[in-house]
Amino acid sequence: MYLEHVNLVVSDIPKVLVFYQAAFPHWKVRTEGSGHWNGKPRNWIHFGDDYYYIAFSDHGEGENRDLEGYQVGLAHFAYVTNNIEATIDRLKSAGFEIYKDGAEEPYRKNVYFLDPAGYEVEFVEYLSDLPEQRNLTS
């Protein structure tokens, strides 16, 4: 079993696509459409590769949860990269700054960015193939 996709509600799909296209240059818009969600019109896209994607719908209102607060909701999600420096460079070149540095760990590097919709996205590069080292936390 594996996670195929997440569905994120945003207010501006083109704006968030800039972030995710920089993070995942090999991904593309797989499919898109429009319709209604509980009576409200919305546009949607599936952005990813042949196996994994992020679904975006543009019927969001208001602000995302306060990431420094204690509200119930999504805290962050993470993607594994083989080259965290290249990922950081692409995101910075697209105009996005690091939101916060990751913990210093001997077997992985990680960093957090905020996408334009206010979702915190972690990128992780593992420096070991051994699960007991990869999963070690200080």
Rank of each mutant, 00 (worst) to 15 (best):
I13C: 13
L17P: 00
V18W: 00
Y20H: 01
Q21L: 05
A22H: 05
A22C: 04
A22T: 08
H26Q: 15
H26V: 00
V29G: 09
E32R: 09
G35I: 07
G35C: 08
H36F: 07
W37E: 07
N38P: 03
G39I: 00
K40Y: 01
P41R: 09
N43P: 01
W44R: 15
I45M: 08
I45W: 10
I45S: 07
H46I: 09
F47I: 03
G48D: 12
D49Q: 10
Y51P: 00
Y52T: 13
Y53F: 11
Y53M: 07
Y53W: 10
I54K: 03
I54M: 06
I54D: 01
I54V: 13
A55E: 15
F56G: 06
S57Q: 10
D58S: 09
G60H: 13
E61R: 09
E61Q: 14
E61M: 13
E61F: 04
G62N: 02
E63W: 05
R65G: 02
R65E: 02
D66A: 00
L67A: 09
L67C: 11
L67R: 05
E68D: 11
E68R: 14
E68W: 10
G69S: 11
Q71W: 12
V72Y: 14
A75L: 07
A75V: 08
H76S: 10
F77L: 15
A78Y: 07
Y79L: 06
T81Y: 08
N82M: 07
N83E: 06
I84F: 09
I84T: 08
A86L: 11
T87D: 13
T87N: 06
T87S: 15
I88N: 04
L91Y: 14
L91M: 12
L91I: 13
K92T: 02
K92A: 09
S93Y: 03
A94V: 05
A94M: 03
F96N: 00
K100M: 03
G102E: 01
E104Q: 11
E104P: 09
R108C: 05
R108Q: 13
K109N: 15
V111P: 00
V111N: 00
Y112R: 02
L114Y: 01
L114I: 06
P116E: 04
P116V: 11
A117E: 13
A117K: 02
A117W: 01
G118M: 03
Y119V: 01
Y119G: 01
E120R: 14
V124H: 12
E125D: 03
Y126C: 10
S128Q: 12
